[in-house]
Design a protein around this nucleic acid. Structure first.
Lengths: 156, 156
DNA sequence: TATAAACCTAAAGTAATATTGAGGTTGAGG
DNA sequence: CCTCAACCTCAATATTACTTTAGGTTTATA
């Protein structure tokens, strides 16, 4: 074998990144347009990625699985050293924050399930009593809440 | 007091339903356009709702909290007796199905949290080992998966 | 070198879940 | 009766996360 540029330092094409990260080429373009990932260009204007991008995409996908919106992911990633591979410490910092969100969402859903269980049992969903009727603890709910003002509620 | 139409049988205006159910008037219009709720009209073409609609909206909101999309909710609601108040049995049937979905989603999230915990611990996110890097068990994921084909992975 | 696969950009399209706006009508209180 | 809040319809806009399309360029390979 002759001396050739070490394979493990070669930059990746967009197609290679897509194949290896499991996201579509168009998605990589999209992420780049949102500033979530970066690329360099070769002399023909084609994207060339360092292998670090694979980790970045992996982080993005994991965060998305936890329910974090891309905008927040972008924000979190922007605290990372630019262009340099994130360290384990970086990763711990990001994932710790996301874990808190995830815990929160899991707890909300478990609470909802408990309510659902008891309400399947009681068959109620009555305006007066049913905890499910109280939307105050809704996930990401804003704006004016319900006003259960009228005490006359027989037909409901 | 003179005899007047019993308050508890009076139909509700869209504004009243909005105030009491906690959703915007525009949302009620939207739900109606999607067939999730129905209304009658008075002689001036204004919507008039039976009190049953409050229960229906409550069901919609609960289902949404569990993560069910409106289209599925619509489908489920369409199995209900039209215009008549849903019975406890109806409610049990619907909520039992939704509970299964909810359990599923909770379990997926808990699995993810466990992975996240162990990966915060190990600080890895390494391409070779980290379970978080395996997106096969993603929530509602379709399309081509990742192809971790290349064994040369030192810089990642 | 010829061809096809892979790549490029910019704009438009998709789906879900609504909200907002324009322009006009109805209804309840004084 | 007058007025203003509440209502009406229909169309447009918003957001998130992408995908698709159109038209053109570059690169890899036979």
């Amino acid at each position: 074998m002759t001396i050739k540029p070490c394979e493990r330092h070669r930059q990746l094409t967009v197609g290679e990144v897509a194949a290896r990260s499991g996201v579509a080429v168009s998605t990589l373009h999209f992420y780049e347009s949102k500033g979530l990932i970066q690329s360099e260009r070769n002399r023909g204007n084609q994207r060339r990625y360092s292998r670090e991008v694979l980790r970045r995409v992996a982080i993005i996908k994991v965060a998305q699985r936890t329910g974090i919106p891309l905008s927040s992911i972008s924000e979190a990633l922007s605290t990372l050293p630019q262009g340099r591979a994130p360290t384990p410490a970086d990763w711990r910092r990001l994932s710790a924050g996301w874990k808190a969100d995830l815990d929160d969402r899991i707890n909300k859903l478990i609470g909802l399930r408990d309510q659902l269980n008891s309400c399947i049992g009681c068959g109620c969903l009555s305006m007066q009593d049913c905890p499910l009727r109280n939307p105050w603890d809704e996930l990401s709910e804003q704006g004016p809440g319900p006003h259960l003002l009228d005490p006359v509620q027989s037909t409901d």
